[in-house]
Simulated scan of single mutants.
Amino acid sequence: MSKTFISWNVNGIRAAEKKGFLDFLSSCGADILAVQETKACPEQLSAALQNPPGYHAFYCCAERKGYSGVACFCKEKPLAVSCGLGVEEFDKEGRTLILEYPHFYFLNIYFPNGGQGEARIAFKLRFYERFLEKSKELFKTGKTVIACGDVNTAHREIDLARPKENAGVTGFLPEERAWLDRFFTEGYTDAYRAFETSGGHYTWWDYKTRARERNVGWRIDYFMVDEKSLPNVTGADILTDVTGSDHCPIRLRMNI
């Protein structure tokens, strides 16, 4: 059966609602729409965001108000939904939703940003480690594993417009990129790169410098699929025409 999955860092779901998020949800054709950086808990949201027509909505929010958070909007109700990776320092930031279906697991992850100094970079790398551990647990079930979200790291030079200028900036540090190497050698495949090998394709642009107008961006949002299921992927693309955030959505099509 063909499935369409979309992932989008909305940079505040209440702000996104004012910019047409619900219209996008109703028209995008996603079987699952995963969003990151919701910056809200369900009780802070409109009835339409809590119960959108045609979708089941699931939220995982941070202890800190107006920070982080992820959500999934699903046409088909999952068998089970879990919030977090089972580690308190990560889970209190509301960064992970895991949905279980009969034939696959779907992970919606808002990976930490490494800003604010070395301690936060170390936190980010610990989060990567735990994510990979959890993924390996799910791989062992034999089900397809699909992970998506804002990874907050550009993997290779081709994934950002100005790699040399950003070589010492978090999001493109050698140790961060090395972790993506591990993801893509220990079970996962970067779905987009299975279809597109050229540069100039980005998912995030800095608001302050009007970088989107000049396409000076970074590709830091990913769909990652377990290697054995990659032959079932029929398409992966970036929805650059969709505005409303400093990120744009990404899409995966797959037979499951």
Rank of each mutant, 00 (worst) to 15 (best):
A211W: 00
V151C: 10
C74Y: 08
I13Q: 11
E129P: 02
E175P: 01
N215W: 10
R193Y: 01
P42E: 15
E88Q: 11
E76L: 03
F111G: 01
R214C: 01
E227A: 07
Y202F: 14
M254T: 09
V233Q: 11
G117T: 12
A154M: 10
V10C: 14
S229T: 00
Y110P: 00
F73L: 07
T243P: 02
T144D: 00
E157A: 07
E63D: 15
F58R: 01
A48S: 14
S229L: 00
E133L: 05
D221S: 11
D226F: 01
R219W: 01
A147Y: 01
F111C: 09
D246K: 04
G117P: 04
R126E: 15
E176K: 04
G199L: 02
I250Y: 11
L107T: 01
V242Q: 14
K140T: 09
E196W: 02
S46N: 12
R14H: 08
E63K: 06
L180F: 12
A57V: 08
P112D: 13
Y202S: 10
A191D: 12
C74K: 05
T234W: 03
D221V: 06
I220H: 05
N51M: 08
G54S: 13
F172W: 10
A191V: 07
R156S: 11
A40H: 10
E176L: 05
A34C: 15
E118C: 04
S135Y: 08
A40N: 12
L230W: 02
F131M: 12
C41T: 14
E63G: 08
D206M: 02
L99D: 00
Y55W: 07
N255D: 08
D221K: 04
R126N: 15
T170E: 15
E88W: 02
E133F: 04
E118N: 11
P249V: 13
A119R: 07
N232G: 14
Y67T: 12
Y192A: 06
F131L: 13
K134Q: 14
I109D: 06
I158N: 08
Y55M: 07
E89C: 06
D23E: 15
F5H: 06
P112E: 13
L173K: 06
A71R: 07
K208C: 05
V151D: 12
A30R: 04
G244F: 10
R130D: 10
L180Q: 10
L49H: 09
D206H: 01
A47N: 12
T189Y: 03
A71L: 09
C148L: 12
A122Q: 13
I109W: 03
P42S: 15
G217R: 02
V242F: 06
C28N: 14
A34F: 06
A178Q: 14
A71H: 11
K75T: 13
C248Q: 11
S68T: 13
L107Q: 03
C72P: 03
A47V: 08
E63R: 04
E118P: 02
A154F: 05
T240Y: 05
G84I: 10
F24M: 11
T38Q: 03
E93Q: 11
M254C: 07
E213R: 06
Q116W: 03
